[in-house]
Design a protein around this nucleic acid. Sequence first.
RNA 1: CGGGACAUGGCUCAGCUUGGUAGAGCGCUUCGCUUGGGACGAAGAGGUCGCAGGUUCAAAUCCUGCUGUCCCGACCA
Length: 482
Amino acid sequence: MSIDNAVKENNAESLLADIAITAELADYSPVKGCMVIRPYGYAIWENIQRILDKMIKDTGHENAYFPLLVPESFLQKEAEHVEGFAPECAVVTHAGGKELSERYVIRPTSETIINHMFSKWINSYRDLPMKLNQWANVMRWEMRTRLFLRTSEFLWQEGHTCHATHEEAKEEVIKMIHVYEDLLHNYLALPIHIGEKTESERFAGAVSTFSIEALMRDGKALQAGTSHDLGQNFAKAFDTTFTDSENKLAHVWQTSWGVSTRLIGAVIMGHHDEVGLILPPKIAPYQVVIIPILKKNLDNTKVLNQAKLFHKELTDLGLRVKLDDREQISQGIKFNEYEQKGVPLRLVIGERDLENGCVELHRRDIRSKDKDIQIAGLIESIVRLLDEIQSGLFTRALEYRKENTKIVKNIAELDSVLDSKSLGFARAMWNGDVELERILKEKFSASIRCIPLRPELPSDHPCIISGTVSPQNREILIAKAY
RNA sequence: CGGGACAUGGCUCAGCUUGGUAGAGCGCUUCGCUUGGGACGAAGAGGUCGCAGGUUCAAAUCCUGCUGUCCCGACCA
């Protein structure tokens, strides 16, 4: 299906793959459920990595690396953890031509093996807090996979920290979910809701789980990152203890938090239009593409030199710029290619422009073309436009979310919201009765995305299921999700 | 894992019902002509029809099994 048709039919399944493949972000691999991330897609990941890695280090964490293989017995030490992850683990049973005496699990996440090491490294309260992060690949054998949003193998970062007190661990959990908010808002241009997961949606082995929830353009919510308060569950399972300042032995309090290559899926499904991908400038592999109009059998030196000069000036400013001076490809094809790839700005320069002292600039986000940009002041215009595009994309996504967030008082109202084509978030009050989650799942194939950290409803808003007002009621966001 | 569909040059697909020498469009290569939004013309390269069995004189086509992909559920970052 073409991207255009997929958008018109709101066929998200087809759309995601169409955009990812045409934009050359990724391709299907010969291994079930796994994708190949192509250079253009990987460059986006590298940009996200560079930005987030700095944030993680700036908040006092250090990078480390733990092995891919985890002894199967490790996974089994934490009861809820094994129950949650065992069904989706790939297991190595043979190596060196022999069957292994203990099987190895390919990490679905690294809490267990990291705790094993923590218990060796942590002895005293003076060793705390210990705040580590690793960039790694993990594998979860999912029933159904989708490019970027759910592949069997995916890339992520996972932070793992140990603290002397529960309060400090809780602060860490909230601090890191806000780091993710910063990343999504200010770099991916995707507005998110921060909130706590309900018990049924919690990470296997966590005391509480916070997530960031983004809204995609097809009206479905996407969990884009999580931060878990692990309490002492893993510490107890792995006997990760320390001697406190009063010489008493105690288990550490832990957190873990992660975001993955799913973020690229979030960008695709959060910013596309009927042409294809739209990339926020801050993570775009190329922020500007320069296309010189070349004439065959004519002297293009002047045009090419000017294009190279722009390329140098912009690159010197620290911008990521691509000069496409391929002579064999017509500019029409190039225009199309870079639009599908979501390059924020296109700078076109030909003989005609040089004579007039101007160039053509095309904005990908609103698909506008200005043919009379004066060369004098061009560089400043480009820098300003990139900022405008970045903030414009966020504003647009925020507007879209506002339009697609409905306040509901009861199930009947929810019915009219979730049954409509637009989907989106429903904001409601809830008394905590798990019956609601059953109804959501069975009737609406929806779920409680989170209990938002920043509630917006008045306290006398009635519970969606009981219809009563109570101080025990909590605000929730409901949506269909990926 | 339950239900459905599909698997044929690089891509999208036709051919299969009714077995008989493998097709189209796009893409690719060369040449010509064009060039400010996906040009045009000509010539050419490229496929043991997903894999393994079976039926048959003969299988892309019929039968069985397997694998993979997509869609709908359940599961999930």
